[in-house]
Structures are given as C-alpha cells and as structure tokens.
Design a binder for these strands. Structure first.
Lengths: 209, 209
DNA sequence: GTCTATAGTCGGATAGAC
DNA sequence: GTCTATCCGACTATAGAC
C-alpha cells in the first residue's frame, strides 16, 4: 500500500518511525526525546528534523501509522467472528498480541498526551471510533440469527465491549504476573457460552418492555 | 485522621499538592513542571523543593493522597450496594463525579507515567487492587441471597467490572459529547435488571422478600 | 541525505537574602 | 518559611561541512 501524496516512505523514514514507537514504549512519553529516539534507532538526532520537521511531527506520523495498522488488524480479526464465543476468543488473542508488541503501552502514552494536545486527542478518538465500529459490526453479525437480535442495542454493546477490552488491556499491563486477564477471558467465554445456550430457549415469544 | 510520621500537613504543603493535581489535569504529565505548578498555585517555585525535595517527590505524594481519597470514596459508595442494579447506579454516579473532578485525567497521566517509573507503577497497581477489592466486596454482598451465588467467580467478575468501569472512564473522557457513556450505563442497568429477574427463576428457590 | 557543532530555551535544583 | 538570583544540564532546532 503506497501513499501517493506526502509522507513517501523512504527506508530511513520508516526506521525513524519504528525507533520512535520503540522509544515510546520503553521510555514513556516524557522520555521520548529526539536524542533518545536517535539512540534507540542508531541514527543521528538531526535526521528527525530533516525528515519530520519536529519531534512532535514525527510522533504524530508514528501515531497515525500505528493506529492504521492496529485497526486493520482488528478489522481482519473481526471478520472471522460469527458468534459471541468467537468474539471472546479473538479478543483474547488480540490482547496477547497487543501486550507482547508494546501496542498497549503506546496507546496509554497516547491517551495521556491527549490531555495536552488536541491533535493527538483527535487521533485517539478516531482510533476508538474505528475500534467500536469494528466491534459493532462483529456483534451485528454475531447475533444475526439470534431470536433477540432486535432487542439488543448494538452500538451500546459495542461501546461497552470496547471499553471492557481497553480496561483489561490497561490493567493487565500494570499487573506483573499477568495471569489474571486470562482467567477473566475464561470467565467471559463461559458467559458467552451460557448466553448462546440459554437465550434460544426464550425465543418464539420474546417480550418487549 | 492525622498522620503521625512524616508528611505533616502544613497549609502550604496542601496548597502545593492541590496545585500539582490541578496542573496535572490541565497540562498533562509532560507539562507538569515545577515552574508550571508554581504558576498554577500562585507560589514560588523553590517552595516545591523546600517541602518535597524534588518535583517527583511532590508528584508521588500527590498521587498517594489522591489515590487514598478516591479509594475511600469508592469504598463508602460500595457500602450502599445491595443488588446488581445498585452497583450500576453507583458506578454511574462515581463516573460523573470522577469526570467532573478531573480525577480521570489524573489517572490517565498516572498510568502513562507508570511506563517509565516503577514507583508510580506500584502506586497505580495498589490503587487498582484496592479498587477491585471494593467491587469484589460489593459483588459478594450483592449476590449473597442469590441462588447462583456459589457458581459465580467473584474475583474475576470484580476484575471485569473494574476493567469495564476504567474503560468507560477513559473513553468517555476523550468523547467531546460525553453522552454515550450515559446510554451505556442505561443498557447495563437494563442487563442488571434482567439478570435479577431471570436468574431466580432458574434457582427454584425463593429470592428476595 | 547524513553528519558535527552549536545557538537558544527551558526545567531542576541550590545558595543565600529576608 | 518564603523569596530572588543563578548554575547547570538536557532539550529542540538549525547552520553548515561532507
């Protein structure tokens, strides 16, 4: 996938972006300076300014790129969902990947930076919006054949599921043992199974408030 | 409640701590410098170093204080919970308060700072732990009379509820309209009601008077 | 395009007057 | 205890050699 306008991908640009993301994950927002990025990537500090104008310019570009990649990954994963149980299992897998790749740390830093920088806030908001939309789609597909499908508030469900996922990601990052999230996914899997098995019994004469 | 050792509360100390929290909320972690805190609080920059040794020392103290207050508030609120529906309504109220007070912003900054500072990570972890414990307690009390009470994994439920709450807090802070979280709480309230009404039927034993 | 060198700014921290 | 003045280090950003 090539971008026609602006931001053409030279190898160096890509290297700098990667170094920025690594640094962000390892040092946090406050520790992500031009010097420290250059050190992590093994190149000269001045290159950042030549290629991106400023440290902030680099960070914005890196954020945007990371967001696009993550959303694309989520969207691809969500395409496989065809039941509530699937949704839980795929969430479990994505969570493990995000934790390992440092993506969660980056999101944390992004959210914090949003407090002071409206432009970053916009990026994060877009990312959440895309994220909810993906879940919304998966939910809609997952309940397509379900007797209660017309009673379920899809948008709110997707929002809540996204929030739950985000919360688990953030809390488990802090947890040194990191075993607890697994058990929570186990429980959610159990609930999904329960709902799938129980609710069809209610079908046939659904009530409406 | 007086603290016997260290950290005696002079009026000035308290003023500095408050200014630090305000600054953190308004400027973000990166913008929370000694000079900027002093400006917000209308006092001299050097006072920070006289009273707290360093900016980091001040921030640690402020974090600790904020954590204690928030946990105390949560604990008091949780004491009122006697059903799943209660839990949702109290969560809704606490969420509104946290949003208005800037506490959410502060937590966001704290989590981000945890990436680079293990001491802060410890504080945040303690806070989450205390938070989960409070919810765990509320859940246990809420299902005390419930027919399924022995099947429900209390700890995992509390973890998931806490994660969901955290996620909603963080996402709604970014949302300019901020109306969506309300609708999600509405939905959760509906689910709570549904569970309370449906599950007793499965037990075959009488529930609440 | 990439490097070295450096100007200019800002923040942490301290000395010392009051 | 609080203020003014100041040092020092680290950062962003640019100029200019290669």
């Amino acid at each position: 996938m090539r971008r026609p306008k602006e931001a053409q991908e030279s190898a160096t640009r890509e290297r700098i972006v990667q170094a920025a993301l690594t640094t962000l994950g390892e040092e946090g927002f406050a520790g992500t300076t031009a010097r420290s990025i250059a050190k992590h990537g093994g190149f000269n500090q001045a290159l950042i300014f030549y290629h991106f104008g400023s440290v902030n310019g680099l960070l914005l570009e890196a954020y945007r790129q990371m967001s696009e990649e993550q959303i694309a990954k989520y969207r691809a994963a969500a395409a496989e969902v065809s039941s509530l149980g699937d949704l839980v299992e795929i969430a479990r897998r994505l969570h493990a990947e995000d934790l390992a790749s440092g993506a969660i740390t980056a999101v944390t830093q992004l959210m914090a930076a949003s407090a002071a920088d409206p432009e970053i806030a916009g990026i994060v908001l877009d990312r959440f919006e895309a994220w909810i939309a993906v879940v919304e789609d998966a939910v809609r597909r997952g309940i397509e054949l379900h007797p209660l499908k017309d009673v379920i508030p899809v948008r709110e469900s997707a929002y809540a599921i996204s929030a739950l996922f985000l919360g688990i990601e953030l809390m488990s990052r802090l947890d040194p043992a990191r075993s607890e999230a697994e058990r929570v996914f186990d429980m959610l899997g159990g609930i999904a199974l329960l709902i799938e098995q129980v609710t069809p019994m209610l079908g046939g004469s659904p009530s409406q408030p």
